[in-house]
Design a protein around this nucleic acid. Structure first.
Lengths: 140, 140
DNA sequence: AGAAATTTGTCCGTATGTATC
DNA sequence: AGATACATACGGACAAATTTC
């Protein structure tokens, strides 16, 4: 099979499926995810794609992987039981330029800019929020 | 060639080398990193290893990658004051938390946060504006 | 204690798709 | 349209940590 990644790439589809199992409780916190081999068989993709999907979950700190052991669903927090719906780690949206951004980019106030927001947590608590602003890509 | 990854894996060695260039100012904020092809030639490793290294930097939010364009250095960090022109573009101030920031940091709306703003220019024109928010007391 | 099996980690090479220049 | 550059996906091979026998 060639590699036409129409729509969503497969690793992301797989990552979403696994995230769904974790968030629905099908794979409770602390439990092992299926092994890479099992996921390869289930989704019929190569190992690299499975590892890519798991890496994406790891980036979102939804799982933890131990060499030689396996990948565990992240253990929420012992005792707390309920976890707020955690904000997305990264998000992208369009915002209107405030006066300062407008001055920097040399555009009118209110011009649409792309804002990318990244949240980094340390031990579950938010450490920093980074917002990056760019111009919309205009053809050059 | 087998794959003896004695000591540090190569992708991490490469990631460290690139991080060093960024933090030293050799690759200033906003500048493009060498292309994957160039890095392949320089370090004499496969493309996958280069991409692994860059993915590690991306995880640390030290770089940002644009499809078809390249990978940009995102933000150096203080300590190596080589970029004087970009230093003037850096500003720090206190701001009141908006509703979203307040939710992320789990504080009251209006709580004072530290906002650090960095402006990256490419050929004189503003490329990106990065605003980083932190709690006041938190050390990082 | 030791060997084998299991499981994740690293690395390579190739091919093709998609976005940008 | 062509060249360049990053993205996705496959397959194979060997290394390292853990568990099992």
């Amino acid at each position: 099979m060639p590699t036409p990644h129409y729509g969503q790439p497969r690793y992301r589809v797989i990552a979403d499926a696994l995230r769904e199992r974790i968030e629905s409780g099908a794979i409770p916190p602390g439990a092992l995810l299926p092994t890479e081999s099992a996921l390869i068989a289930e989704f019929r993709v190569s190992r690299g794609t499975i590892r890519h999907a798991i890496a994406a979950l790891r980036e979102q700190q939804l799982v933890v992987t131990d060499h030689g052991r396996g990948t565990y669903a992240s253990s929420g927090r012992p005792g707390s039981g309920i976890d707020e719906d955690s904000a997305r780690e990264t998000r992208q949206r369009q915002v209107a330029a405030d006066t300062e951004l407008a001055a920097l980019f040399a555009v009118e106030v209110g011009t649409a800019l792309v804002e990318q927001q990244r949240v980094s947590r340390t031990n579950g608590t938010v450490g920093t929020v980074i917002r990056t602003y760019r111009m919309l890509r205009a053809k050059q």
